[in-house]
Amino acid sequence: MTEKQSLSFVLNGESREVSIDASELLVDVLREKCGMKGTKRSCDVEVCGACTVLADGLPISSCTTLAIDMDGRDVTTIEGLARNEKLSRVQQAFVDHAAMQCGFCTPGMVLATTALLETNEKPTDAEIRHFLRGNICRCTGYIKILEAVKSLV
């Protein structure tokens, strides 16, 4: 009934072409076919933010996105932020502030923060909390995360 489809997209700055089924979810294609294991599957219902990736610079839940919908688009995973072995400024701020405990939510937190600062250079505390509200840290290490984000404003 279904045939393989070709997904052409830019992943972390590199053009990719992957053969997929239309029913495959983005999180599975990224993890299993593109090796981007930093994208985490957790709640599976677009609530927790662990599977966050950026599509054309804005955050989406890869667990509830069809991979085929990324055809022609620009996708960034956590692996795409560092350049030439150098962490991005958001990644570096998370390291400097020890803004992680178990680390499972960290890729999503870092990517959401990256999108926030791209769209709003000087967010207020309330704007930071509002934007990151959909990223859950079950270790509850929110204070350190907020400190890391605020250090960039």
Partner: peptide, 12 residues
Amino acid sequence: SDGIANIRVRVA
């Protein structure tokens, strides 16, 4: 609109 669900749901 700015308060619906979370940023990822609002974007998609």
